[in-house]
Simulated scan of single mutants.
Amino acid sequence: MKGKPLQDDSNLYRAFCCPDQLTSLELKPKVGFLNKAGELYKFIDPDYRVIDFVNTKNFTEFDKANSKIYDAPASAEVYRNFLDWLFATFNEDEMSFRQNLIKKLRLSAGQKVLITGCGFGDDIGIIYDMVGNSGEIHAQDLSKSMVLSASNKFKQSNVRFSVSTATALPYKSRYFDAVFHFGGINLFGNIKKAIAEMERVCKVNGTILFGDEGIASHLRDTQYAEIAISNNKLWASQPPMELLPYNASKIELSYILGNCFYIIQFSPSDGLPAMNIDILHKGLRGGTARTRYFGQVEGLTLETKQALIQEAKNRNTSIHALLEESIKKMLSL
């Protein structure tokens, strides 16, 4: 993996915005970014590639707990020990696993990618090899120590980092071609907001992929699940399908690593799924989805309903058509 030498180009910071107001930021070279309220978000590395957007005053209880865990002196060792155990347990080669998972994004040269909860940056190199020098990679995490560690490993000019919360991302809306997250979202607290933020920053028809612990439903009542959950309570988590945004399309749910981790993939669309609600139903009832929903009126007596049905049959028409004709005639419409 080779990259261009580090350069001071303000265009490399164009992805960022104020995480609270989503407004534009003013770049202060070699200092940081200034929002419209005068708050300064500082660079915290000598290469001016890592920006600290965290305001601890806005921390939730989950943010405080996660920050304490992942910024602890032993966090790197604990994190590495867990990953070694995890991949050994499921007999997976870590690099092959990461490559196969990221292939689901179907990345190509020149694309813009965001990694949320990047940890120590284990996925950055794989993504860089796919998008190349012409692409753009942003890596985000709440842990300052993890982000700084990742930035020290990846010096490419088109890789940028932020210390920020996943529920208030400091990135412009509809900026990225793909957003990737694996491991951590179960602990984000407001999972719905974290998913909504990934959707907000991803382009329409882009790709969002995220996953975490959660045993597949068909294994829930087995001893296999009991053993797994006894080892790691997070494996009792359910995939948060009900928290996906209403405009999610091309939705896929799958399981990996012994069916103990869920993977959810979707694309943002322009709105709700397309549905033509004006197609006429054939048959006695008749009408359309529109008229059946918006055209509901006060109920009839049973005798009147039965007479209406019989009259529709006699005329070889639908109840809807008969009602429309009768009411319009009565109201002189």
Results as ranks from 00 to 15, higher is better:
R285V: 13
L300F: 14
L22Q: 06
D123R: 04
R174I: 12
R49M: 00
D278I: 01
R80A: 09
Q223V: 10
V159P: 00
Q310T: 15
S230T: 08
K36S: 04
C260D: 00
N11F: 08
C18D: 10
K112C: 06
Y262H: 14
R315D: 02
L219E: 00
I185G: 00
S24K: 11
C202A: 07
V147W: 06
F16M: 01
T222Q: 14
A289T: 07
L331A: 13
E39R: 02
P19S: 03
E197M: 09
F161D: 04
E94I: 01
R160T: 11
G211L: 06
M198P: 09
L6R: 08
N81V: 10
F294R: 11
M95Q: 06
R80C: 06
E61C: 11
N190F: 04
V54S: 12
D141C: 10
E324C: 10
N232F: 02
I327H: 11
D71G: 13
H218E: 09
F33L: 14
S108T: 06
F59K: 01
H281W: 13
N231D: 15
A168P: 07
N58M: 09
D270W: 13
K112L: 03
V179E: 04
E26T: 15
K104F: 05
R220Y: 09
T165K: 06
I263L: 12
L322P: 07
V204R: 15
S237H: 03
E242N: 11
R290F: 14
V147M: 11
D221G: 02
P46G: 09
I115D: 04
S157H: 10
I69N: 09
A37F: 07
I115Y: 00
Y48T: 03
D141K: 05
N232S: 04
T222R: 14
E92V: 06
A76C: 14
E77H: 15
T116W: 00
K250E: 15
L40M: 14
K313R: 04
I51P: 07
I256H: 08
I229R: 08
G189K: 04
K203P: 15
S96A: 14
S162R: 05
A307N: 06
Q306M: 12
G125T: 03
A216M: 11
A150H: 09
F97M: 00
V179M: 09
L234Q: 05
T116S: 01
Q156V: 03
W85N: 07
Y246N: 14
K328C: 13
L40D: 13
A166F: 05
A178E: 02
A150R: 08
S332L: 15
Y246P: 07
